[in-house]
């Protein structure tokens, strides 16, 4: 087994638009260590969603991969045909999305759907159900036998997200991609789901969120994305305590979560994300001189 489950190098993706190619990912490099939890933070339009779609081989038709590589356990995913990608999605990769309701078919029972996703395992149905029950216990679902007979609409959002995590773990994925899994949840449920993900020792997780607090709570490593590039990466404790990139500093400063006492105005990030049909050369963030902190090194 390689040291890094996921190894993305110099990935370029652009979308064809009326105004020319929209260069959404411009040389993204990212590694996820085996058994580790890596977080990706960034604001809307930074390319998080495109990155996930590229890993899963689910880029829309107008997207074009301009270069780079995505390796899962050393296997190159770019250029893999549909059959190979499907094999991987059921086996190597699993996704937990923001809206668990959309991940389930509303007219089939939970038990039926979780049995179906184990189609690769040649074991009797009774054994598959037992695996589900065991997994439900592991993700903290009370009364698992009864949940098997339930329909997705009968479960609450928090419960359904647990079921989605159980479903993802059932396939024993080499990489679990969690795309904003707690954004739609209340704060007490968010804390529960984060604790649950944290407790899945040995599962490699790529956690995408715009919530800095959630990333700080869950992840070991963090990559900060801005306008299609990774601007800063490193251990969470180090990046959040001592951000080196001016964008990371601004992002952390704008989050009211870091302030113990309220009042006053929050720092904001003036200006707009650059137009990615004509990205500037050099640093995309290129802040006005006045924003620079002493010691900011140009990236």
């Amino acid at each position: 087994m390689a040291d890094n489950v996921l190894d993305i190098g110099d990935l370029h993706v652009s979308y064809a638009t009326d105004r020319g190619p929209l260069r959404v990912l411009r040389g993204v490099g990212l590694t996820v260590a085996t058994g580790g939890i890596t977080g990706i933070v960034g604001e809307s339009g930074c390319g998080k969603s495109t990155l996930i779609a590229a890993i899963l081989g689910l880029l829309p038709g107008n997207a074009e991969i301009g270069g780079g590589s995505i390796r899962l356990d050393g296997q190159e995913l770019l250029g893999l045909d549909e059959a190979g990608m499907r094999l991987l999605r059921g086996n190597g990769l699993a996704l937990i999305s923001q809206n668990p309701m959309a991940a389930f078919n509303p007219v089939l029972t939970i038990g039926r759907q979780l049995t179906d996703i184990q189609y690769r395992h040649a074991i009797p149905t009774a054994l598959k159900r037992q695996r589900i029950v065991d997994m439900f216990v592991r993700v903290g679902i009370v009364d698992p036998e009864r949940r098997l007979a339930a329909y997705p609409g009968q479960l609450s959002g928090g419960m359904l997200q647990r079921v989605a995590i159980a479903a993802a773990l059932l396939t024993r994925p080499r990489l679990l991609i969690a795309d904003e899994p707690t954004t739609a949840l209340d704060v007490t449920l968010e804390a529960q789901i984060l604790a649950l993900l944290r407790a899945q020792h040995g599962t490699t997780i790529l956690f995408i969120s715009h919530h800095l607090g959630a990333v700080a709570t869950l992840c070991d490593q963090v990559a900060v994305m801005y306008a299609g590039t990774v601007v800063e990466t490193g251990p969470v404790a180090k990046v959040f305590a001592d951000p080196r990139h001016p964008y990371t500093r601004r992002l952390i400063a704008a989050d009211p979560g870091h302030l113990a006492i309220g009042g006053g105005l929050l720092p904001t990030i003036p200006g707009r994300v650059p137009d990615l049909t004509q990205p500037p050369s050099g640093c995309v963030f290129a802040p006005p001189a006045a924003w620079r902190w002493r010691g900011d090194a140009g990236p």
């Binding site: 704060v187 007490t188 968010e190 804390a191 529960q192 984060l194 604790a195 919530h211 800095l212 607090g213 959630a214 700080a216 709570t217 969470v236 404790a237 959040f240 305590a241 952390i252 989050d255 979560g257 870091h258």
Partner: peptide, 16 residues
């Protein structure tokens, strides 16, 4: 339950 931005203040488990 509010996740802290400071990884050093990571809770041991969910508060509720």
């Amino acid at each position: 339950s509010e996740p802290s931005i400071d990884p050093a203040r990571r809770p041991a488990g969910p508060a509720l």
